[in-house]
Simulated assay, not measured.
Amino acid sequence: MERSRIAVAGASGLIGGALVRSLTADGHEVVRLVRRAPRAKDEVRWDPEGKSLDPAVLAGCDVVVNLAGAGVGDHRWTDAYKTRIRRSRVLGTAALAEAIAELDEKPGVFVNGSAMGYYGETGDRAVDESAPPGAGFLPELCVEWEGAAAPAQEAGVRTVFTRTGLVVARGGGAWGRLFPLFRAGLGGRMGDGRQYWSYIALHDEVAAIRHLIDTDGLSGPFNLTAPHPLTNREITAAMGRVLHRPTLFTVPAPVLRTVLGEMAGDVLGSARVLPGRLLESGFTFTFPDIEGALTAALAEP
C-alpha cells in the first residue's frame, strides 16, 4: 500500500498499539483517536459514546480502523459493565460510520473490530464465516456491533469486520494474564480442558488487518484466528513445553463460575473458529501453530 493517512480508534489497546507501530514503521501517517486530552500531534480527542463525531476529524483519511471498546475480560460482567461494553462498541462504531458517510471524500475502507464471540458456543463443531450468530451476551453484542457500521456500508465504503480470536501476546489480553501464572508453575487447564480455544499470534493479527486493508474487494466478516484451533488441554500442554514449567494445576469449572460470574462461560465455552475467508483471500500465517505463537509472544520487546 502506498503511503496513506489512516485513522485508528483504540490505538492504545493491545491490537491497536501494535497496528499503529506497524503502520508508522512503514511510513504511513496515523491519526490516533483518543478519549483523553491529546498528548501528541498525531492524536485527536473523541468520545466513542457520544452521539456524533465531527466528520472533519476523518477528513483526508484513506482508511479508518476501529478497535475501540471496553475490555471484555477486564471486569466481572455485572449489568453495569455489560452496558459499558455494549455502549463503547456499538455507539463508537455508529459515530465513526455516520461521520464516514457524511464525508464528501470518503475513505476507501472501514475496518471495524468484532470478535469470534459472534458464534457463541460451538462445541466440537468447526465454524467459518458462513455460520449464524450464537446465543447469549457476546453473540448479541457482536451482531449489534457489526450492525452499527451500516451507515458506512450504505454510503458505499468497503467495510470489513475482524472477528478476532484470543490474541497470543505477552503485553495484554488472555495471555498477558496466563504467562505469569505458567512461569510461576501455577498454570493448568481450565475446567475439563476439552473446550476449543481459537487463538491468533499478535503478529498475525496485525498482518491480517493490514492484508484486509490492502486487498481490494474484500468486505464483510473475516475470522482472525489461526488455522488449527486447539483445546484448552492442548494449549496448556504447549505452554508447559515452551516455558519449561509443570502444568499440574487445574481450575475447576465451579470455581471459575464463582470468581468470574457470567464471564466464566467465555473461558469454559468452546469456540472452534476457522479463518476460512482469510485463507481464501491469500493470507499466509507466520505463526499458524501454538508453539510458534507462544515463542513469538515471549520475544516481544
Rank of each mutant, 00 (worst) to 15 (best):
M1C: 06
R3K: 14
R5D: 11
I6P: 13
A7N: 10
G10I: 09
G17F: 01
L19M: 08
L19D: 11
S22E: 01
T24F: 08
H28A: 14
R32M: 13
L33H: 09
V34K: 05
V34N: 05
R35Q: 15
R35L: 13
A37H: 12
A40N: 06
K41L: 13
K41G: 13
D42G: 09
E43Y: 06
W46C: 13
P48A: 05
E49I: 10
E49T: 15
G50K: 11
K51D: 15
L53W: 12
L58N: 04
G60H: 15
V63T: 12
V63S: 07
V63F: 13
V65D: 14
V65M: 09
A68L: 01
G69R: 01
G71A: 03
V72K: 00
V72P: 01
R76Q: 05
R76W: 02
W77H: 02
D79C: 02
A80P: 08
K82I: 14
S88L: 07
S88D: 12
R89V: 00
T93W: 14
A94M: 10
A97C: 14
A101Y: 13
A101N: 13
D104C: 10
E105G: 13
P107Y: 01
V111E: 02
N112M: 03
Y118H: 07
T122M: 04
T122I: 10
R125L: 10
E129G: 08
A131E: 02
A131W: 07
P133Y: 08
G134M: 08
G134N: 02
G134L: 11
A135F: 06
A135H: 04
G136L: 00
E140D: 12
E144T: 12
E146W: 05
P151Q: 06
V157A: 06
T159F: 11
T159C: 04
F161S: 06
T162Y: 07
R163W: 10
G165T: 10
L166D: 09
V168E: 12
V168H: 05
G172M: 03
G172Y: 13
G173W: 00
G173Y: 00
R177C: 09
P180I: 07
G185I: 15
G188W: 02
G188Q: 15
G188E: 04
D192N: 15
R194C: 09
R194H: 11
R194T: 02
W197A: 05
S198W: 03
A201K: 01
L202S: 10
D204Y: 01
D204C: 00
R210F: 08
D216L: 15
D216E: 06
L218Q: 12
S219L: 08
P221N: 06
A226E: 03
P227G: 04
H228A: 09
R233G: 15
E234K: 04
E234P: 06
M239D: 12
R241C: 00
V242E: 15
V242A: 11
H244M: 15
F249L: 14
P252E: 01
A253K: 03
P254T: 00
V255P: 01
L256P: 10
L256T: 06
G261V: 02
G261Q: 03
M263H: 09
D266A: 07
G269C: 03
R272Y: 14
P275A: 01
F283A: 02
T284Q: 07
T286V: 09
T286M: 03
P288C: 03
P288A: 11
A293T: 04
A297L: 01
L298Q: 13
